[in-house]
Amino acid sequence: MVKREEIAHAADLIKIDLEEHEKYFEQVEKILSYFDILNKANIESEDLVTQVLPIEKLREDKYIVYGEKLIEKLKNYKGTFIEAPKMI
C-alpha cells in the first residue's frame, strides 16, 4: 500500500497543490492499488524490450523565420515581448 506522504510528495514534485483536495488522495490511492494488478502479470524477463526503428528521412534541421504571425495572437503581447507575471 502506497503511503499518503508518498502521494503528497509526487503531487508536490509535479506542483499540484493538494491542500483543498482530500478526496483526490482517496481516489489516487484506489487507482494505484488497482494498478497493483500488474504485479500478477507474468513477464518472462524484467528487462525492457525496446524496438529501435531507424528513421532515415528526417526533415532538414533548418531554422525557419516564422515572424510575427506566430505570436500575434498571444495574450499580453507588446512589441516583440510577452508580458508575464513577475517571478522572484
Binding site: 508518498e6 502521494i7 503531487a11 509535479i14 499540484i16 489516487v28 494505484l32 500488474l38 525492457l48 524490450v49
Partner: peptide, 26 residues
Amino acid sequence: TRRMILGAFTPSAGYAGKYFLKALNV
C-alpha cells in the same frame, strides 16, 4: 489533477519499476 498526480508517481524513483516499466513490458 488526478492524472497529473498519478503521472508524477508512476515513473518516480522507487516506483518506476513497479508501475511504468512493468506496464511497458506488459
